[in-house]
């Protein structure tokens, strides 16, 4: 009987269950959306869990700083809750990869992109910077080191900054999937596989829409999903109806059907992208059914990431005077 496996997480789950209550629910999000100005929206935020951050922020209008701070707080909490687990690391890898991309591009374009660095990853941004500068690659995790080497080689061959993204995205997917399966986080692995599928679906739709060519699509497809890249490539040449048909036996049937219908009507892929994100959120909600175990913790972190993304969409929209209806169009479903 596996008593220990799930009950290891009992304390963490207890805390998460209370913290979930503090996630912004539909009503609060609605109020935030309906705010007439940035100031009013900030006032709404001050009534939520973000109150402290808004009050303490040197510049409350800098929503990126506030939300980054919140995300960091969540990761620190997960570290504290599960000190012996690599679970928090799974979420941090993407920030390191982002920093690596930024720094490599800055290196090749001889520009300073330091303001784009995010200091939330496993390795401090400064360390990554000095490591890359002094070419001391072996002092960062092996996978990063190999990713950077591959990215450099690819760039020098093709002289296109996009290949840096492609190579490092692959590094990220492979690394996260590997860690998730090693840690026995089956739920997270399933979420990731679906995420890769949906990213590939979005790439396919985008490349088709822009008519960028099949080679371009081949480069952007990621491995590691439930659908192999070879499922997507032949669809480049087919028409949209055939694409819908091809997905009719996958779990993404509804996403593709509605997304493509909206595209054919409006010429925009925003609906498809939104439906893809909502699909993931629906999967994430399964975590509510797990009483004990790592699932609620994983779901909380992802719900927070989603919430922060929504807050950014709203606040940046408000700042730029985007109409409320248009903002609402872009928002993703929330976890609670």
């Amino acid at each position: 009987m596996s008593i220990s496996q799930d009950s290891r997480y009992a304390y963490a789950v207890g805390r998460i269950r209370v913290l979930e209550n503090k996630l912004l629910d539909k009503t609060k999000m609605q109020r935030l959306q309906n705010a007439k100005s940035v100031d009013e929206a900030l006032l709404v935020l001050s009534e939520t869990d973000y109150a402290d951050l808004v009050a303490k922020a040197p510049n409350p209008y800098d929503i990126d700083a506030i939300t980054t701070e919140e995300i960091k707080r969540v990761y620190l909490l997960i570290r504290e809750l599960l000190p012996k687990e690599a679970l928090a690391d799974l979420f941090l890898i993407k920030y390191d990869i982002h920093n690596l991309k930024v720094l490599l591009k800055a290196h090749y374009q001889k520009k300073d992109f330091d303001y784009l660095l995010v200091d939330a990853g496993l390795v401090p941004a400064e360390t990554i910077k000095s490591v890359l500068k002094n070419d001391q690659l072996p002092s960062i995790p092996k996978e990063y080191y190999e990713g950077v080497k591959a990215a450099k080689a690819a760039y020098e061959e093709r002289q296109d900054p996009k290949v840096i993204d492609e190579v490092l995205d692959r590094t990220q997917t492979a690394m996260v999937a590997d860690m998730a399966s090693k840690g026995g986080h089956e739920f997270y692995r399933r979420l990731l596989a679906a995420q890769v599928d949906l990213v590939n679906l979005k790439s396919l739709a985008r490349v088709k829409r822009l008519g960028r060519g099949r080679a371009f699509l081949d480069d952007s497809l990621l491995p590691g999903g439930t659908l192999a890249p070879s499922f997507f490539t032949p669809l480049y040449g087919s028409d949209w109806a055939q694409l819908v048909q091809a997905f009719s036996l996958t779990p993404y049937k509804a996403v593709v059907e509605q997304g493509v219908a909206a595209y054919l009507e409006s010429g925009q892929l925003t609906t498809l992208e939104k439906l893809a994100d909502n699909f993931q959120m629906t999967m994430l909600r399964e975590a509510k059914m797990f009483a004990l175990g790592p699932e609620p913790i994983i779901a909380y972190v992802m719900a927070k990431e989603n919430e922060v993304r929504n807050i950014r969409i709203i606040m940046i929209g408000k700042k730029n005077g985007v109409a409320t209806a248009e903002i609402a169009e872009r928002l993703r479903e929330s976890y609670v």
Binding site: S7, A10, V13, G14, I16, R17, L292
Partner: peptide
Amino acid sequence: QMASGVVTED
């Protein structure tokens, strides 16, 4: 353990 987690926050 679970109770401790909940009480920590509430």
